[in-house]
Design a protein around this nucleic acid. Structure first.
Lengths: 262, 262
DNA sequence: TCAAAAGTGTTCTTATTACACCCATGG
DNA sequence: CCATGGGTGTAATAAGAACACTTTTGA
């Protein structure tokens, strides 16, 4: 028996001592965000099997034995929406002992940003229905999915302030007002129009397309697109994207109580 | 057969269809940070068994079937250091298919901040040795632990700028210079002494203990402690902790090259 | 008396905030 | 001609960055 063989035998025996740990499973769950009609939305499915049959849930599935976590998350997303190469990022893992009735199943949560207008519902065996829900009107979900949703929404709020990812939620061409409304929906606050525009334009990340909206019953807005190349350059040279919440200074209303003026 | 029973039977049968997914395991791995001699350190163990026998690695272990993820991370930390109620937070999960020779094992990474002076090495069966390593002098680790370390160090850099957690790494009583050196070690930058002090003191988060260092061969510095209660109050009323990198403006040296002045 | 680190203010520049009116279009 | 949202600038304030000398102690 040469050295390699004895090392291998050793490894196999050691592995056996850990057999009891190899009885669990993991899944991925995606919080897929979209933006439509000035409202932040999440794509939910109505479950078509036990457990939680019939309840609304985050799209997710077991990770196959030979599948990376990111691949699994992408697969779930693609099966449901048909989309590839979409913004998708791990948030964190939820692993309470009793979170799944099948046994020990931990789930790795991802959040995804999609252009809702490009979305085409795919037939998916697990989903009786898939539907966009306004983030403000979601009630009880299957498993611990409300907690996962909260964590992902918080991550989104955070991310959108420090990286230019909001654009992933808008059509390729958008107006500054659409962009502002997007930020307002995500950050759950109001922003000052002039200050917002000044700030965004000063970053030099938008390309003015010299086009305007058509068929709107008001002065048509200019269209812009996000300049990804430019962002990469700026990032490489130390620039960091930063937007603040629109925290207006608290002022006093006529009852003397602190409020946020508007 | 009543409704509940039929539902249960249904559940059990459904479960069987997923048997193949229940053959994997998960571990937790901790990046335990400490600060000593002006240097940011990480606690590593030298592995005492296969795989990667003899290599330096992050402390970690399998998660027991009836154990929450956070509990497992805390257990690993306590077995190694004897410490409880220490700062510990999940970062993210690493799950490449081939990352572990035993089979499919994903690992949930945590980072922890400890007061290194309070640390007492515990005997731990898995560890031949445990030792603090300067973060700048760590080379090849077992598994994918270098990647995990990077991710956790990045998370630390980020966290330390947005939440007052640096104090977890210092003794209860500390000087402003110690605090500054801590930030400099984490952010890998230099900070301006006067600006740093002005900023930190203006946050009103430190209690001046009216004590000074003793036995130092120079003017003794005042001692402060972190006011956790005060931070909770301020946080609740909308305050947000924020420190910037010490990005000095680039200036030109006499060769005309861009440098950071100091 | 020397070495070593502590401590301290001001000026300049940049970023953030608050705020109100005219413009272009479709109906 | 009206309703709707688009588009614009300035002044006041706050925050950040640059910068150098005196103080206190132990050896």
């Amino acid at each position: 028996m040469d050295g390699n063989q004895s090392q291998l035998k050793n490894l196999v025996q050691t592995r056996k001592a850990f057999d009891n740990f190899f009885k669990s499973a993991f899944t991925v769950d995606n919080v897929i965000f979209g933006f439509d009609e000035g409202d932040l939305k999440v794509l939910l499915i109505r479950r078509g099997e036990e457990p939680y049959d019939g309840m609304w849930a985050l799209p997710g599935y077991f990770v196959y034995p030979n599948e990376d976590l990111d691949s699994a998350a992408n697969r779930v997303l693609e099966e449901l929406t048909g989309m590839r190469n979409v913004f998708l990022e791990q948030v964190r893992t939820f692993g309470k002992v009793d979170r799944h009735p099948f046994g020990r199943v931990i789930t790795v949560a991802y959040f995804s940003l999609v252009k809702i207008d490009a979305y085409q519902l795919q037939p998916a065996s697990i989903a009786l229905q898939a539907r966009w829900h306004s983030i403000s009107a979601i009630d009880e979900l299957a498993f611990d999915h409300n907690k996962i949703l909260d964590a992902c929404f918080n991550r989104l709020k955070w991310s959108v302030k420090t990286r230019p990812i909001g654009f992933e939620l808008l059509p390729r061409k958008f107006t500054l007002t659409e962009l502002q409304h997007l930020y307002e929906a995500i950050l759950e606050t109001d922003l000052d129009k002039r200050n917002f525009r000044k700030k965004i334009l000063s970053m030099d990340l938008l390309i003015d397309l010299d086009e305007t909206q058509e068929g709107v019953a008001h002065r048509p807005a200019k269209l812009y697109k996000f300049d990804k190349e430019r962002y990469k350059e700026l990032e490489a040279s130390g620039f960091s994207f930063e937007l603040k919440d629109g925290k207006r200074k608290p002022t006093r209303n006529d009852k003397g109580l602190l409020v946020n003026s508007n």
